[in-house]
Design a protein around this nucleic acid. Structure first.
Length: 228
DNA sequence: CGAGTTTGACCGGCGC
DNA sequence: GCGCCGGTCAAACTCG
């Protein structure tokens, strides 16, 4: 594990909080374990969606989100995000939450230039979700300020493709977990308007534990539960 | 030589 | 129906 990326992640070097909030990003303070619940299921629920998307949001998501957090984690989030916000989510219908999925706004989001630190998890376009027929694995994405494209999350990945997508100058790379019977994939690309920012999108759940290299065994295990 | 990466071709979904 | 585009495949290539 690269100590650089580890440090980056643990510090939560994310920005553009205001825009992210508007677009459905969920922000975490830099000193919080990412994600705050360290739980597989929590990740896919951490996407805020407009209430109009309620029909697409499974009713149990809000419950899943909160039930997967420990009391301490709930308190952490409540204190950082503001108690009422979390409490309102807890009481709310599932309308506020939907499956984590990624849209292009996530990739093309503009920078506000602030020094906020947060993780951003985007929402799929309403239209896309409503029209999707194919059932896809839950996804979530976050952006990280990093020199390296591939953040070491403890899992082993094999690159299987690279593509230059429209309206971006940086190629998108496609990775697949090398573990047998694990179909988790991730995409990595850099923000067009801020090459320092790396957008990582995960799809699916790991059916195994992270496989650290020998040299990484002494690294902090805070990220062990980062991904499912 | 095996594991991982690169890269052009191919495929399927979606919008028009 | 057609073309565009994102995602995946797989052969060739590189590296340790």
């Amino acid at each position: 594990m690269s100590s650089t990326s580890q440090a980056m992640l643990n510090q939560g070097l994310f920005e553009d909080q205001e825009l992210s909030t508007q677009m459905g990003f969920f922000s975490f303070p830099p000193n919080m374990t990412i994600p705050p619940f360290g739980c597989n299921q929590s990740l896919k629920t951490l996407t805020t969606m407009p209430p109009s998307l309620g029909a697409d949001a499974p009713n149990s998501l809000t419950e899943t989100l909160l039930s997967s957090a420990t009391q301490k984690q709930k308190e952490d989030i409540a204190s950082h995000l503001g108690g009422p916000q979390l409490l309102s989510l807890q009481r709310s219908s599932a309308n506020l939450w939907a499956w984590g999925d990624v849209n292009n706004e996530c990739m093309n989001s503009k920078r506000s230039g602030g020094d906020h630190h947060h993780i951003g998890i985007s929402a799929m376009k309403v239209k896309k979700i409503k029209s999707r027929r194919k059932v896809r694995e839950p996804r979530f994405c976050f952006k990280t300020m990093s020199d390296v494209d591939v953040l070491d999350d403890g899992y082993k990945w094999r690159k299987y493709g690279q593509k230059v997508v429209k309206n971006t100058q940086h190629p998108r790379s496609y990775y697949r977990c090398t573990q047998d019977n694990c179909r988790v994939k991730k995409r990595v690309e850099r923000l067009a308007d801020d090459p320092r920012m790396v957008i990582t999108t995960y799809e699916g759940r790991h059916a195994h534990s992270p496989s650290h290299d020998e040299e990484d065994t002494q690294a902090p295990s805070q990220l062990n539960n980062f991904f499912w």
